[in-house]
């Protein structure tokens, strides 16, 4: 992703496309889109990734996370014809030479999160997935925040430390 961002590298983009486009399409189909629409939107999402590449900050989000946020917004736009207002950008942008320790900490955390998700009982995992496919009511979502995803708490601390560290 950093090659796409810094060098507009199309080979690197193609690799990302091969990995993520089928996942984005799968995600959109599970969210209620038909296959044709999902394919079209997967292309839109990957094009947006290219267009907004300068905004990618590997110390704050993994590529998968960043792609998820673009796909989610596209889903809301497509299926609900609504805006999803985004928070104001932080006053600082991605650093040209990000601290590798921060990048690695975030990557490790992403791995832990994936593992935590996989070890959840199937029923709970289905519920979380349904929430992200846009399928749950508010009260069903409330039941999710109590799930034993301890890594989420450490992820929150990491994110907060990072925000506060950058602010100094």
């Amino acid at each position: 992703m950093q090659r796409v961002r810094d060098h507009q590298d199309r080979a690197a983009f193609s690799d990302l496309f091969t990995h993520f486009a089928p996942r984005i399409k799968g995600f959109l189909i599970k969210s209620g889109a038909d296959a044709t629409m999902a394919e079209e939107c997967a292309q839109d999402v990957m094009t947006t990734l290219w267009r907004k590449a300068d905004q990618f900050d590997p110390t704050r989000a993994s590529v998968a996370t960043w792609i998820f946020t673009i796909a989610r917004n596209r889903r809301i736009d497509m299926l609900r014809r609504q805006n999803r207002p985004e928070p104001e950008e932080l006053p600082w942008g991605p650093e040209p030479e990000p601290d590798q320790a921060d990048v690695i900490a975030l990557q490790q955390d992403s791995v832990l999160l994936t593992e935590a998700l996989k070890t959840l009982p199937a029923q709970q995992r289905d519920l979380i997935e349904k929430a992200y496919f846009g399928d749950l009511t508010q009260s069903e979502i409330a039941s999710l925040t109590g799930l034993p995803l301890g890594t989420i708490k450490s992820r929150i601390r990491l994110a907060l430390d990072r925000l506060r560290h950058l602010m100094k």
Binding site: F20, A61, F68
Partner: peptide, 9 residues
């Protein structure tokens, strides 16, 4: 958001 990333991946 990062949980969403893990799900889509």
């Amino acid at each position: 958001d990062s949980l969403g990333g893990a799900i889509i991946d």
